[in-house]
Amino acid sequence: MRIYDLHCDVLYKMLLEPRLSFSDDKTLDVTYERLVEGGIGLQAFAIFLPEDRVPTFEMVEEAVHAFHTSILSRPKMVFVKSREDLSRAEREGGIGALLTLEGAEGLMGSLEYLQRAYDLGVRCLGLTWNYANWAADGVLEERRAGLTLKGRELVARCDEIGMIIDISHLNEPGFWEVLEFGKRPVIASHSNAAAVTGHPRNLSDEQIQAVIVRGGCIGITFVPDFIGGGQGIADVLKHLDHVCSLGGEDHVGFGSDFDGIDEYLHGLTHPGQYVKLTEALHKHYSSEQVEKFLHQNWRRFLEANLPE
């Protein structure tokens, strides 16, 4: 069973502490050994810039350098920039590594830097984090202004070059503007259902259905505050059930947010424990559905939206 996980923040920790090792470092949730243990077929690695530093494109490049030296240097890791890379990782039994950018701050308002990020292999862009930046307002920004004029230009340019837009962290006005000013499918790499747990980071039924209609994909995340309930694996399935009830069986997967969280679900604290989630899925869904949730839906989306 190959698992695709569309969000983790291990690169953020590496920016904060460059001496961290991707191999068997107990201060990290995501390590090479745990990806192997968990049967991970693809892991997305987010570039999230430390909030206590002035964001620059040089910091984005610093994260890309750490990605190459610490992560891609491991024997089974395959840098996924294209459909062919995705297929090669599967053929060779490797672990695909997808590079994403969480927040446009480091692009410094420049569409040229957007192109440079794409040239470096970044294939997915989350426009903002929880607050405002030059492109958009996040879910916790009180003014709720959506996209800026430059943000609209950014969305249009992402469409042109093939940069996938991630609407996790974007506020609802901005969400609808992304769908208005962009025409390609979008993803929510790590967001849950607001109807199940009313957290600002979760998506309304209308948003979930809009992502589905556009041909996008939603990654159910393991952040306890977003999950609610008793905060165990059974509560993850409630969000999965809800997305499926809205027509999302072919448009939902997982985006753990490991290394971006300080609290954990019971029994699901690192990628090596995906086996426990897999066991729970098999008790509630058909084998065909489990395959969709664990990798096929994300696989199909990436096959359709990565360059050849």
Rank of each mutant, 00 (worst) to 15 (best):
V36W: 01
E141Y: 13
S110N: 03
R144L: 04
S82T: 14
L125E: 05
R143D: 15
L86K: 07
K76L: 15
A104Y: 02
E160T: 08
F79C: 04
T100C: 15
V122R: 04
H65Y: 12
T128E: 09
S82Y: 10
G151Q: 10
G39M: 12
G94A: 11
A117H: 00
V80E: 02
R83I: 08
D52Y: 11
R88G: 03
F48R: 07
T100M: 15
V122N: 06
A44N: 12
I47N: 02
D137K: 10
I40M: 14
G146V: 10
E105D: 15
R157P: 00
E112P: 01
A63M: 00
L42E: 01
D52F: 11
A117Y: 03
A117P: 01
I71P: 03
L107F: 02
R74D: 01
E62M: 12
M77L: 02
L101A: 09
G126D: 00
R144T: 08
G109H: 11
T128F: 08
L149N: 12
V54L: 13
V122L: 13
L99V: 01
V139F: 14
L99A: 10
L149P: 03
A132D: 12
R53M: 15
T148F: 11
V64T: 07
N130Q: 10
R143W: 05
M77A: 08
V122Y: 06
R116E: 10
Y131A: 12
R74G: 00
L42F: 05
